[in-house]
C-alpha cells in the first residue's frame, strides 16, 4: 500500500517579500485609472469653461495690459440688449431652421429611397457620405468658386438654360440661401445615415402584416415607417441643430458675413468681438450665453423625446 502525502497548500505559497507594499485597493485602482482622463477633462474642458465664466463678469481684454475689473452682469446685459446681437440671432435662427429642415427632408427622402433598393445599397450609401468626410473649409472654398457670379459653374449652367446670372454670395437673401445649400450638401448624409439605420431596423413582419391587409404604400409609410423612424430622426435633428447653431467656418469662407453683416451668425459675431476688438470679457459672456441657450433648448428637446419614447 502506498500512500501519497499532499503537502499543505500553505507550504507551497511563497512567503510575502519583505517590505513589499500592500496590494492596491479597488478604489485606489479606480482612481489611478480614472485620474488621467479626469485631469485631461479638468484642464481641457472644465477649467476653460470656468475661466470663461469668470472672465464673463469682468472687462478683461487679453491684449490690453490692464487688470480685469469686475463688472457684474454688465456684459450679459449689454449682449442681451444689443440690437447687433438680436440681428445675428435672427440670422442664425433663419439659417438653423432652413438648413436643418431641408437636410431632414432630403436626408430622410434619400434614406427611404435607398432602403427600398435591394442592390447597391452599400455603394450608394458610401457615395452619399463623401461630402461629410470633407473639411468645411475645403467645401466652402470650392463652393465659393462654383457660386462665383462671373465664372462660377452654377451661373454657367443657368446661362446655358437662358437664365440671367445670379449674385449668389453678394446679395440678400441669396447669400443666406447659398449658405443653407452648401451646409445641406455637406450634412444631409448625416441625417440620411441615421434615418437609414432607423429604416433598416423596422421589423419586416409589420410590412408583411400590412401587405396581407392590402394596406397602401402611403398607409404603410404613414403608420409603420414614419412613426418608428421619427424618434431616431429627432436625435439626428438635434445634433444637426446644435452644429448649425454654432456655424462659423462656412460663413467665414463663403460670405465673410456679408453682404454687410447680413449673414453674420452668432458664432461669427463672437469671433469678431473676441479677435477684432479683443474684448475678452464680453466675448466670454457671449460664449457662455450661447452654451446656455443650447443647453436649455436641448433639455426641452430631450424631454420631448423621452415623452415620445414613453408613448
Amino acid at each position: 500500500m502506498s500512500s501519497t502525502t499532499t503537502p499543505p497548500a500553505q507550504a507551497s505559497a511563497p512567503p510575502p517579500a519583505p517590505g513589499r507594499t500592500t496590494r492596491l485597493g479597488d478604489r485606489k485602482l479606480a482612481v489611478t485609472f480614472i485620474s488621467p482622463a479626469l485631469l485631461l477633462l479638468l484642464f481641457m474642458s472644465i477649467f476653460p469653461l470656468l475661466w470663461a465664466l469668470y472672465l464673463s463678469f469682468t472687462d478683461y481684454s487679453v491684449t490690453r495690459d490692464k487688470p480685469a475689473k469686475f463688472v457684474g452682469l454688465q456684459n450679459y446685459v449689454d449682449i442681451l440688449t444689443s440690437s447687433q446681437v438680436h440681428q445675428r440671432t435672427l440670422t442664425t435662427l433663419a439659417y438653423v431652421v432652413g438648413a436643418v429642415l431641408l437636410q431632414t427632408v432630403l436626408g430622410f427622402g434619400i434614406a427611404y429611397l435607398i432602403s427600398r433598393r435591394r442592390r447597391g445599397q452599400g455603394v450608394l450609401t458610401t457615395l452619399f457620405l463623401v461630402p461629410m468626410m470633407l473639411s468645411p473649409v475645403v467645401v466652402g472654398l470650392f463652393w465659393k468658386f462654383m457660386f462665383d457670379a462671373q465664372f462660377g459653374v452654377v451661373n454657367s449652367m443657368l446661362g446655358s438654360l437662358g437664365l440671367e446670372p445670379v449674385e449668389w454670395l453678394t446679395r440678400m437673401p441669396n447669400a443666406l440661401i447659398s449658405l443653407i445649400v452648401v451646409d445641406t450638401w455637406q450634412w444631409t448624409p448625416f441625417i440620411m445615415l441615421i434615418a437609414l439605420a432607423g429604416l433598416t431596423a423596422v421589423p419586416n413582419y409589420l410590412y408583411e402584416a400590412a401587405s396581407i391587409d392590402r394596406a397602401s404604400e402611403w398607409f404603410r409609410f404613414r403608420h409603420i415607417t414614419f412613426p418608428l423612424v421619427w424618434p431616431l430622426l429627432l436625435i439626428a435633428v438635434m445634433f444637426r441643430a446644435i452644429e448649425a447653431f454654432r456655424l462659423f467656418d462656412l460663413v467665414y469662407i463663403l460670405t465673410n458675413g456679408g453682404p454687410g453683416v447680413s449673414t453674420e451668425t452668432l458664432s461669427f459675431h463672437v469671433y469678431k468681438v473676441a479677435f477684432l476688438g479683443f474684448n475678452t470679457g464680453t466675448a466670454s459672456a457671449y460664449g457662455i450665453l450661447m452654451v446656455l441657450v443650447v443647453l436649455v433648448m436641448a433639455q426641452f428637446y430631450l424631454r420631448y423625446l423621452t415623452k415620445l419614447k414613453e408613448k
Partner: peptide, 12 residues
C-alpha cells in the same frame, strides 16, 4: 467695411 459693403450690395 461692413457698412460700405452693405451699401454697395444693396443690403443697406
Amino acid at each position: 467695411n461692413t457698412n460700405v459693403n452693405a451699401a454697395l450690395n444693396g443690403a443697406a
